[in-house]
Each structure stands twice: as structure tokens, then as C-alpha cells.
């Protein structure tokens, strides 16, 4: 739509600004809170401008954490979250792209059955099958381990369909040209399919990284050792302090820190990510 009316432009900008304010305000409040002391918050009026305790609060979180709620320093939890998010993102991409490759390019017995099995996992996210999954993970002795944190979340096929769609848009003639050029299946996968799905992989990586980073219920359930606490679940543990008021300034400082890696991933992969979402030319 190409319009050139100043009134409309103004309106559009006002709407956008209102949107930005609505989204940004809670983040701002969290940031402000993380720069005050605990007592400033309990006094009844919430301050709207940053206070003088920024360095102190963040240093404390990075260094020792909140010992009263039994959480380790933020660094450990961030590392756990990072490992978990990366494993989930990479694992899911690896599994999905290979299964999509099999489904699109090979005719094997029970192919339709395999396809439907994958399809059904779409309807069964972890939250739905959480009790049996917990049982299985516990029986396999994977509680309090990275394997237990990630494998149940990797094993679902959402992304298979994305890659299937991508592969279906690759013209048959390209596949045939590769066949004539002597590229066997694996070579075709490596030399043609992977590079052609590069932008989709990047887009998916961003989405899955954030998905993995934001996991809450599952890590909360299966980690009992503080060595494996993830940051999102950790924030929750900090917030329910048993023997006193939650230390909101520290919780907010942790929340601010927890936001950084996803933001970094989004900014870092922005160019590829947007390309992956909008690109149609193959």
C-alpha cells in the first residue's frame, strides 16, 4: 500500500510508538528494579528511574547468586541454559532435516507410516506427555543430566515439516541434474540440499534456540541438583523464597541477564533469519 497522507503517517507512527511503549515498559521496570536495593521496592512506590546499585546487584548475581533460595551463581545457570538451548536447536535441526530428506527423496517400505508417526508427534508436545516422559527419563537414569534435559525436547518432529516444505520447493530437475552429475544421495544432501536450506536452518535455529532457552516446566521437573539448574527455572526458584520476601532486585537482575543470549542470537542471525522467512526464489 502506497499512501502519502501526513495524517495517516502520523497515526501510524503513534500506533507503533504506543506498541513499543507497551512492550518495552515491563522490561524497563525490570531494569530499573535491578538497579535498586531490596528496600527501595518494598517502600510502596515503584521507582521509575535507575538507582545507584547496578554494579553491585549484577556483581552479586554473577558471583555468588542468591544462597537463600539454593540457586547457584547466574553464570552456572546461564551456561546450563546455553548448553540446553544449543543442544535442542542443533539436535532438532539435525533430526528434522535428515528425516525430511528421507521422507521426500526415498521410497522405502512403510514410508507413509513413518510420515504419520512423525506427524502424530506434532500433537504431543512435552507438556502433554509429561508424566510418561518423566517416567522414561527417570527409569533411564537421566534425571539431572544434559541428556535428560534435552533429548525429550529434541524428539519431536515439528521442524521436519518445515524442511519437507523446503525440499518440495526444490525443483525435480535440480535433483535430476545432480544425479546425472554423479552426486549420490549423501553428496546431494551435503552439496545441494544443505546449502539451499541454509537460510531456513538459520531461521529455525533462532526459533529453536529461544524455545530451548525459555523451557521452564521440564527443567523444573527433572533437575533437583543445582548443578543443572537452568536460568529460567532458576528465576522461578529465586522468586519463591521460603523464609522471607523475594529479593526482587536480584531476581530482576537475573531476568535482565537471562534476556541477553536470546537477544544476541536474534541480532546476530537477523539478516539470515529474515531472509529465511521471506525468501522464495530457489
Amino acid at each position: 500500500m502506497i499512501e502519502n497522507r501526513p495524517g495517516l503517517t502520523l497515526l501510524a507512527h503513534l500506533t507503533l510508538m504506543a506498541g513499543v511503549v507497551i512492550v518495552a515498559l515491563p522490561v524497563w521496570v525490570a531494569f530499573v528494579a535491578s538497579t535498586h536495593t531490596a528496600t527501595d521496592f518494598m517502600s510502596g512506590t515503584i521507582p521509575l528511574w535507575p538507582g545507584p546499585h547496578l554494579v553491585e546487584n549484577y556483581a552479586r548475581m554473577l558471583d555468588t547468586g542468591v544462597s537463600t533460595s539454593g540457586t547457584p551463581p547466574v553464570g552456572t545457570m546461564m551456561l546450563n541454559s546455553l548448553v540446553m538451548a544449543l543442544l535442542i536447536a542443533c539436535g532438532k535441526i539435525a533430526i528434522s532435516i535428515t528425516s525430511a530428506f528421507a521422507i521426500v527423496y526415498f521410497r522405502f517400505p512403510l514410508r507413509t507410516l513413518a510420515f504419520w508417526c512423525i506427524f502424530i508427534t506434532l500433537m504431543l508436545p512435552v507438556e502433554v506427555r509429561i508424566v510418561p516422559t518423566f517416567q522414561v527419563v527417570a527409569d533411564l537414569g537421566m534425571l539431572n543430566s544434559y541428556a535428560g534435559l534435552t533429548i525429550p525436547l529434541i524428539a519431536s518432529a515439528t521442524a521436519t515439516f518445515l524442511f519437507r516444505q523446503v525440499f518440495l520447493t526444490i525443483p525435480d530437475e535440480l535433483t535430476e541434474a545432480a544425479r546425472i552429475d554423479g552426486a549420490g544421495p549423501m553428496k546431494f544432501f551435503r552439496d545441494i540440499l544443505l546449502p539451499l536450506s541454509r537460510t531456513n536452518i538459520a531461521a529455525l535455529f533462532v526459533i529453536l534456540f529461544i524455545y530451548g532457552w525459555n523451557q521452564y516446566l521440564w527443567p523444573l521437573l527433572i533437575t533437583t541438583s543445582s548443578d543443572y539448574y537452568t536460568i529460567v527455572a532458576g528465576i522461578k526458584r529465586m522468586a519463591d523464597a521460603v523464609d522471607g520476601l523475594p529479593q526482587w532486585h536480584l531476581v530482576m537482575a537475573t531476568a535482565m541477564l537471562a534476556m541477553l543470549p536470546p537477544v544476541a542470537v536474534v541480532i546476530g542471525m537477523q539478516r539470515l533469519f529474515v531472509k529465511g522467512l521471506v525468501e522464495t526464489e530457489k
Partner: peptide, 12 residues
């Protein structure tokens, strides 16, 4: 060697 209607060049 085959030449296809829509060229089938490897785009990347």
C-alpha cells in the same frame, strides 16, 4: 549429459 528446460543450475 542433459540440458533441462528450466536450466536446473545449482543456485548456490
Amino acid at each position: 549429459a542433459m540440458v533441462f528446460q528450466n536450466y536446473a543450475l545449482y543456485p548456490h
